[in-house]
């Protein structure tokens, strides 16, 4: 899945810069589409106006976002046939158990805490992209639409 774009749903500009840098540092060549709020995400993923929807390799989603929380967005993504099986990785600062539990209950594929130490974050991004972009085999699109 090195050709499909990575969707980063994040509103903190510092976090956006640091995350983009981490992907670049780890040699991830995928296009990274950054969306800063949930409304934008829904428009791109589930367009109502007939434009072709974005089909990302993975969605990296923060929980605290303007307009819709990451958990609300997750619920919307999972309840639509077109996006039911797209891998969603919660990438958040929260270590609260309730966020972890709610994420999995709503169908998140993974829950990753952003560490404070940047070198640690670099390792996290490396592992994460290696797994989700290379190792993980996605469901064939004939059976579960991309």
């Amino acid at each position: 899945m090195r050709d499909a774009p990575i969707l980063l749903v994040e509103d903190n500009p510092d976090d956006i810069t640091l995350t983009l840098r981490a992907f670049a540092k780890n040699g991830v060549g995928n296009e990274i589409v950054v969306l800063t709020d949930g409304e934008l995400l829904l428009t791109r993923l589930l367009p109502a106006d007939g434009t072709s929807p974005l089909r990302p390799a993975i969605i990296l989603m923060d929980i605290h976002l303007p307009k819709f929380s990451g958990l609300e967005l997750l619920q919307r993504i999972r309840s639509d046939e077109r996006t039911r099986y797209v891998p969603v990785i919660m990438l958040t600062t929260s270590t609260e158990e309730r966020d972890v539990v709610a994420s999995y209950q709503l169908g998140a594929n993974s829950f990753v805490c952003k560490p404070v130490a940047y070198d640690e974050f670099l390792r996290t991004v490396r592992t994460l992209s290696a797994y989700w972009l290379d190792i993980n085999k996605r469901c064939p699109s004939s059976e579960c639409p991309p």
């Binding site: 976090d15 640091l18 840098r21 929980i63 958040t92 609260e96 952003k114 404070v116 940047y118 070198d119």
Partner: peptide, 22 residues
Amino acid sequence: FAYSVSHDLRAPLRTLNGFSEA
């Protein structure tokens, strides 16, 4: 409060640590 600490207070630290590293 704890929830806010968990989320909001850590974010600026990531910025500090991340950009000094950069």
